Amino acid sequence: MIVLAWILVILLFIIGMLGTIYPVLPGVLAIYGAFFVYGFMVGFEEFGIWFWSIQTLILLILIIADYTVGAISVKKVGGSRASVIGMTIGLLIGPFVIPAVGLILGPFLGAVLGELTQNQSLNHALKVGLGSLIGLFSSVVMKIVLQLIMILIFFIWIIF
C-alpha cells in the first residue's frame, strides 16, 4: 500500500508540474491532492496545522496569481478587456490547435485578435500580444518555483 501511495504521489507531482506548461492539467491542485493521497493511504500523522496552513497559502497565491498575472501584464501595456479574454482563450485552446507552439502562439494571437476587434492599430495589438507573453512566462516561472517549494515542504515534513 505504501508503494502504491508513493507512486500516486509522484505521479500527481509530475502532473502538477506539467500543468505549469499545459493549462488543461490540474497543476497545483494535483500537487495539493497528492498530500491527501499520501494522508489517506499512509497517514496524516506527519501533517499538522502548520503544514496545511503553509500549503494552503501557497495554493491560494498560485490560484489567484495564475489568473491575474497575465491580465495585469496585458493591461500594463495598454490592452483592453477583449485582449485579456482573447489571451485566456488562446491559452486554453492554443496547445490543442497548434500542438508544438500553441502554448506560446495561442495567448499571443488571442491578445492580438482581441485588440484588433477593438479597432486598435496592428502595432498596438502586437505590443499587447507581447505583453501577454511576458505575463505568461512570468506566471510559468512563478508557478514552477512555488510548486517546487510545495513539493520540497512535503518531503521535508515527511522526512523530519
Rank of each mutant, 00 (worst) to 15 (best):
V97S: 13
V97C: 13
K143H: 03
L152G: 15
P26D: 04
G86C: 07
M142W: 08
V101Q: 05
V77E: 14
L11C: 14
M87N: 08
G33E: 10
L57R: 08
L105E: 05
R81I: 09
M142V: 12
M17T: 02
L29D: 02
G16Y: 02
F154Y: 12
I93D: 07
V74L: 05
Q120Y: 10
V9C: 13
L18C: 00
I158K: 11
L25M: 01
I15V: 09
K75L: 12
L133I: 10
L146F: 08
L11Y: 11
V74C: 04
L62W: 05
V140D: 00
T88H: 02
W6S: 08
Q55W: 03
F35M: 10
I2D: 14
I89E: 09
Y38W: 09
I159Y: 15
I54N: 03
F51H: 11
G43M: 03
I15S: 00
Y32G: 04
I64K: 07
Y22S: 00
I98D: 10
I63D: 02
L103E: 01
L57K: 11
L92G: 12
L109I: 15
K127L: 15
A5Y: 09
I63A: 05
P99A: 11
M142E: 10
L25V: 00
G43A: 04
S80Q: 07
W50V: 12
L116M: 03
V9D: 07
L152T: 15
I104M: 06
G135E: 06
V3T: 15
M17F: 10
G39R: 03
L11W: 12
G129M: 05
V69K: 06
G106W: 05
G27Y: 02
I158E: 13
M17V: 12
I156P: 07
M1P: 09
A71N: 04
V24A: 08
Q147M: 11
G86R: 08
L29Q: 01
L4Y: 10
I14K: 02
L152C: 14
S132C: 04
